[in-house]
Computed example of a mutant assay.
Amino acid sequence: MSLSFKTRDRHGYSVKFSPYIHNRLACSSSQYYGIAGSGTLFILDIIVDKLKLVQVFNWKQGLFDVTWSENNENIVLTASGDGTIQIWHLQQPQGPIKVLKEHSKEVNSIDWSQTRTDQLLLSGSWDGTIKLWDIFQDRSLSTYTSHENIVYSVNWSPRLPFIFASASGDQTIRIWDRRKTADANMVISAHQCEVLSCDWSKYDENIIISGGVDGVVKCWDLRKPNHFISQLNGHQYAVRKIKTSPFNAKIIATCSYDFTVRFWDILENKLLKTVEHHTEFVYGIDWNLHTPGQIADCSWDELIKVYSPLSGLSS
């Protein structure tokens, strides 16, 4: 069974399940395909056989990514086309409780650390920089400038507290250790095109997955970074986002500009399932941390979908 919610004149960019509340998710969206207009953050609950709207927040420009706080169930953050990051409180609907502004161009990606008590935030931008934030401070803690093009994705390692990865239009994935230097510890020439997404294995600290404009998904072992360990072909167009399963080490999900979401076995190097329930670019996907096998996606066709595509597998 697939549940749907219509965002109505808002095109979905990113979706994220709450780490606290098993049936809650957030979706960041933009008017006019993110080219112009405002942005809207939707907070939804899964209630039996429907998606119920809990809260709506509006911002003056498009919202391109969303992440939840890991230490407060009511805090959710968004990344905007005006170079800002908004911090929202679900019990304060009048507007963001704080706005972080340092990036000079749109913010594509944000990610909240899951492995430390101080819970730091990363942001990646069209200005080519990555910034590290403590949201209780007004200025960023560090700025990372090694990338030579747009930073499309930033991701904390789920297993190593100080390590994070980034994917960029400069055709690389870069691995960073925030304790050591402002320069990347490792540069992987991942694709011969822009790299739009990367995600870490939840089970092996050395495995990271990348997706590019070439429609190809590649798996990398950081101990042997000069060549991918496997390659997954099938998407017709760019791979916009990758999410590794929190319940099964070999399962990943990918979404694409080819209107599909695909599910793969990275150990057997095979496609498990293709889901074709959108009529536009699919921009966002996320696994539910509380319900094995359940996933949400969002698309430019103004639909958010929640479903369990791999029945019989703990994915």
Rank of each mutant, 00 (worst) to 15 (best):
N155S: 09
S189H: 14
V15F: 01
F64Y: 13
G284L: 00
E276R: 14
P96A: 12
F228K: 04
R262A: 08
T117W: 02
W112T: 03
V154M: 06
L141R: 10
C298Y: 00
T129I: 03
N226G: 10
P93Y: 04
I252F: 11
S113C: 14
N206E: 09
V195I: 08
S157H: 03
S299W: 05
K98E: 03
T40P: 05
Q171E: 15
R174T: 00
I175N: 00
I150L: 14
V216S: 06
G37N: 09
K270M: 11
D258C: 12
R116G: 05
Y203R: 07
W133N: 02
H147N: 09
N72V: 10
W112K: 03
I75S: 07
V48H: 15
I46G: 05
G124F: 00
F247C: 10
L100I: 11
L53M: 12
D301V: 01
Q31P: 08
P309T: 02
D199R: 01
L53H: 13
K243N: 11
G215A: 11
I150Q: 05
E280S: 12
I43F: 12
T254Y: 07
E102D: 12
V99P: 04
V15N: 00
K241A: 02
C219F: 13
A165E: 07
D127H: 06
S153G: 08
Y257R: 04
L51G: 07
A249E: 14
L77D: 05
F164V: 00
G83T: 12
A165P: 08
N269F: 04
F5A: 03
